[in-house]
Design a protein around this nucleic acid. Structure first.
Lengths: 355, 355
DNA sequence: TTGAAAGCGCTACCAT
DNA sequence: ATGGTAGCGCTTTCAA
């Protein structure tokens, strides 16, 4: 049953050609007569011959593989859903360029060791860095290892040059906050990611900038930096809503605490979009959870997928041309807003103009 | 900068041992003196020597890699969030067993070709089949290719033996529907996945079984089989809620249409958990969206991750022992219910007993 | 335009 | 318990 596939030696003998010529024909070298190439290509299809990837990788010294490291915590059984979309976008680009995608799932404590091993084993030609911290040690590590890499996001306190692709988190959060201020909100809670995460810092800066520009006092009691779990959203919102001087609006850094916030609002007998405004932001996107015009959740994720494409392309380019100028790209944050507020079109307009 | 790592030849010369002995020591062969092994292991650590994976794979004829194919549609920019958790769970097991995870992202039309190529290139030792249809052609294909594989889910109309790991979708949906019936609901809408998906068929069967066992007529106008998009949930719920004889409860097959349903309910000026009950089911789990007792969303995903572990382990076992008896495992569906209905504890009890 | 043959870095068989 | 060496299946000089 297990039909052992044929190898180059057998295949070339079958054609009455040398392995060299067949290899050349298959790999698009120019010095092969066109008629020969066609013959080889046809025969390959007919006999279902595919060069063995393992041999190819050894011979060329390239893995033709990009590594993504996904650190998971034993404690929090939770993966950011954003990850799936990002990977999907990146994977599209890899497929188009003949690269494989190696996904390494590791305990978050052994992340650095994982990068090290991936490189020294020669399993990958390049790596993607996910979720950079404000000062991320992985950047120095990968530089030291001499492996091409691209960061999805940035690491603000690192001052060496490195490739990154990021969205304008600060501006996105500034706009969202301004929008809520325009609606008349004065007490706006911010449920942000951990303070050492770069994206969280930038988002927080946008939130603060918006408040300050309108002379609204920044209340530290409304700003939270925690791991983005559902419970974080639920407990925080519940506490705030049942206390004095409750906020009238929430901005959440991810859909996961956002779900918790929704529960808390519902539990409090309040109605979202009427009694309380909620904006949930996920990489590259903000939206109102009760949007009526378009599928907000879908839009979020589609946008993340696009980011994945950009990052992957940047890395492939870097692998092909190691000495190319450092790639640093800023993606515009896409914002989708709902009509339930009655003012969404205005924001949309503002954003389009802001483009 | 790019320190080209040393190879076995150099490393063994450095030690004054043969490549053979070093290789044996590194790979745990018994015929090496323990003192020699320690010496080798220490030196490897000291000189940072890691055997080249590309050479190893060629020499052993094994890829030590498991393939997951993720078909994405160009039309629907959406990946089921479940996928990330499943992958995370599987990846844990792979890491523990020295396997790499190769994720192949392909356009959904070229899915079969992707499996074919992965195998004939020799890039993987085994494959996971995601999202099986009622009669899935991939099972015959992989059998023909002679590659070990495990299906996450089942393919009901296939009667040959193959490995699968599935949750009890029928029972889960039957229970959920019974629960809503117990609450007094008589018009319960079911927003299910596409009719050719195996999980959707089983879930539909559970829903129908519950209604029939209580002598509640099954209304075809309340059953929907579509792709699980946010818009599907939104438009369907909106239409139903604004029409005559609107349902008082919804059961959704995935969180994605579930988000749409929530929007529609909110838009209609209704409150979830009070005016309308909603149960959203995702692989292996059901929950009420306004659960107050525990983080439902997190529980869903944690459960999916567990499924990923089971599937991965089954495949690894199969690769190690191809002639082992066919692995077929049924995971119990975990159900989480919220207190907002006031009757959740009763259901929880029922479920616990049902175990 | 084609071919012969030397690697790529490791494993595993056969000796010792 | 250790070593020599022939592959694994391909790419890539170097020759013709």
């Amino acid at each position: 049953m297990n039909k052992k596939s044929m190898n180059l030696k057998e295949f070339s003998e079958l054609l009455g050609l040398s392995q060299t010529t067949v290899s050349r024909a298959l790999n698009g070298y120019p010095e092969v007569r066109e008629s020969t190439r066609l013959k080889v290509l046809d025969a390959a299809r007919a006999h279902n011959y595919t060069p063995n990837a393992r041999a190819k990788r050894l011979a060329t010294g390239k893995a033709m593989t990009i590594g993504h490291v996904l650190p998971v915590s034993k404690k929090h059984e939770m993966v950011n859903p954003i990850f799936a979309d990002f990977i999907a976008g990146a994977g599209e680009i890899y497929s188009d360029n003949g690269f494989d995608l190696l996904l390494s799932v590791v305990d978050d404590v052994s992340e650095e060791a994982s990068y090290r091993k991936l490189v020294s084993r020669g399993a990958v030609d390049g790596l993607i860095v996910h979720g950079p911290k404000v000062n991320d040690s992985r950047i120095a590590l990968l530089r030291e290892l001499g492996v091409p890499f691209v960061v999805h996001g940035r690491s603000t306190e690192i001052d060496t040059d490195y490739c990154w692709v990021d969205v304008n988190n600060k501006r996105a959060f500034q706009r969202v906050t301004e929008f809520l201020l325009d609606l008349g909100h004065r007490r706006i809670a911010l449920l942000n990611g951990l303070a050492d995460m770069d994206f969280a810092t930038r988002r927080g800066a946008g939130y603060v900038a918006a408040l300050e520009s309108r002379d609204v006092a920044v209340d530290p009691a409304l700003m939270f930096h925690e791991e983005m779990t559902e419970n974080f959203g639920y407990e925080t919102a519940r506490r705030l809503l049942s206390g004095d001087n409750a906020p009238t609006a929430f901005v959440a850094s991810s859909i996961i605490p956002g779900i918790g916030i929704r529960r808390a609002i519902s539990d409090a007998g309040l109605t979202m979009g009427r009694d309380v405004s909620v904006v949930i932001h996920d990489d590259a996107l903000s939206y109102f959870s009760n949007d009526g015009d378009e599928p907000a959740f879908t839009a979020v994720r589609s946008s993340v997928r696009q980011a994945g494409r950009h990052v992957a392309q940047a890395l492939i380019d870097r692998i092909a041309t190691p000495d190319a100028p450092v790639h640093q790209e800023m993606l515009e944050a896409v914002l989708t807003v709902g009509r339930s507020t009655g003012q969404a079109p205005a924001l949309r307009q503002v954003l389009d103009q802001g483009k």
